[in-house]
C-alpha cells in the first residue's frame, strides 16, 4: 500500500515536473528551425512561477464555473496522467481506469474549459469553445478506434497490461502494419487534442485564429498558471501514451531501483524525442483552415479503421 502511494506520488511529480519542460523544448526546437536562439527550455517554469504570483483579474460577468474550471481541468488532466504507465510498466492506479477512462477524463477537462470560454460573455471565448467542440468531436472516434486496434493485439484495454506485455515482448504481432496505422492515427489525434499546428496554433497572437487560447483568453494570474500547466500535462499525457504504448522499451518492468532509474531515463529520452518531432512537424506545416481540419481528422479515422481491418485480415 505504502509502496503504491509512493509510486503514484513519484509519477505525479515526474509528470508535473516534465510537462513545462516539454513545452519549452518544442518552443526551442521551433526557434532553432527559424534560426532564432529562442528562450531557454526552462522558460515555461519561470512563466508559471510568475503567473502564480500575479494578481488575477476575474470578469464581473462570470460565475463560480469560471474560477472552479482551472482546478477541475488541472485535476482531471493529472488524474488521466496517473492512469497511464510512465516509467514503471505496472501503475498502482491501473485498476481505477483503463484507456477509455483516460479519454473521458480528458473530455471532462474539455467540457469545463468550453463552459469557462462561454462564461465571460466575450465573443472570443465563445468562438474558442465552439471550435473546440468540433475538433473534439472529430478526434474522439479516431482515438477510440486506434485504441481498439492496439487493445486487440494485446487482448486488453488496460494500459498497464498493454505496456507490460509489449515491454516483455509478449504477443508482438509479426506484421507491424496495424500498429503503424494506429500510431499514425494517434499522432494526428495528439496534435489536434493538444492544440498544435496544423490544427491550432499555441503561439498565435490573433484571437480569430485561436482555439484553445481563445477559450482561456480571460484567464490571468494563478488561474492561467493552472490552465497552462494543465495544457502542458495534456501534452505530456499524449506523448507518454504514444511513447509507452508503441515503444515501451526501457520501461521498468520490476520495482528494482536500477530498473526504475533506467526507466525514468528512457522515459525522458522518449518524450523529449517526441517533443522534438512535434517541434519539427509544427515548423514544416502551416496551420490549416478550420474546415480543412475535418479532412485531416478524417484521415486519422480511416487510418485507425485500416489498422483494425489489417489486424483481422492478417490474423485470419
Amino acid at each position: 500500500m505504502l509502496q503504491a502511494i509512493i509510486l503514484v506520488v513519484a509519477q505525479m511529480i515526474v509528470l508535473l515536473a516534465v510537462s513545462p519542460f516539454l513545452v519549452g523544448l518544442i518552443r526551442k526546437v521551433k526557434a532553432r528551425l527559424q534560426l532564432r536562439r529562442g528562450a531557454s527550455v526552462l522558460q515555461p517554469y519561470a512563466d508559471l512561477a510568475k503567473l502564480f504570483r500575479k494578481q488575477p483579474v476575474v470578469s464581473t460577468t462570470t460565475s463560480w464555473i469560471f474560477t472552479a474550471t482551472p482546478y477541475i481541468v488541472f485535476a482531471s488532466t493529472l488524474a488521466a496522467g496517473l492512469l497511464i504507465p510512465i516509467f514503471v510498466s505496472i501503475t498502482p492506479l491501473d485498476f481505477a481506469g483503463n484507456i477509455i477512462a483516460v479519454v473521458y477524463l480528458l473530455a471532462l477537462g474539455t467540457f469545463f474549459l468550453m463552459l469557462a470560454g462561454l462564461d465571460a460573455g466575450s465573443s472570443f471565448g465563445g468562438m474558442g469553445s465552439s471550435r473546440e467542440a468540433i475538433v473534439a468531436s472529430l478526434t474522439e472516434p479516431a482515438m477510440i478506434l486506434s485504441i481498439f486496434a492496439i487493445a486487440l493485439t494485446k487482448g486488453s484495454t488496460n494500459l498497464s497490461t498493454i505496456v507490460h506485455k509489449t515491454a516483455l515482448l509478449e504477443g508482438i504481432a509479426t506484421d507491424p502494419s496495424p500498429y503503424l496505422m494506429a500510431l499514425a492515427a494517434l499522432l494526428i489525434v495528439a496534435l489536434a487534442e493538444t492544440g498544435r499546428v496544423p490544427v491550432d496554433n499555441p503561439a498565435t497572437h490573433l484571437e480569430l485564429t485561436m482555439i484553445h487560447e481563445a477559450m482561456v483568453l480571460e484567464y490571468s494570474g494563478r488561474y492561467l498558471a493552472l490552465i497552462e500547466w494543465a495544457a502542458g500535462l495534456k501534452l505530456a499525457v499524449f506523448l507518454s501514451l504514444i511513447a509507452n504504448v508503441f515503444a515501451p522499451w526501457g520501461i521498468a518492468t520490476t520495482l528494482a531501483p536500477t530498473a526504475m532509474g533506467i526507466g525514468l531515463l528512457a522515459y525522458l529520452l522518449k518524450v523529449s524525442g517526441l517533443a522534438v518531432l512535434i517541434g519539427i512537424l509544427e515548423s514544416m506545416f502551416a496551420k490549416l483552415r478550420l474546415f480543412r481540419v475535418t479532412d485531416l481528422l478524417g484521415v486519422a479515422f480511416i487510418l485507425a479503421l485500416l489498422g483494425l481491418l489489417f489486424f483481422y485480415i492478417l490474423r485470419s
Binding site: F74, S76, L82, D94, N98, I100, A101, T157, N158
Partner: peptide, 18 residues
C-alpha cells in the same frame, strides 16, 4: 486483465488533485 474501472477511486482522485 481485460479492463477495469473504479469510479469511487476516480472521484477521490479528482477531489485530491483539485
Amino acid at each position: 486483465e481485460f479492463s477495469s474501472l473504479s469510479t469511487p477511486v476516480l472521484a477521490l482522485l479528482l477531489v485530491a488533485l483539485s
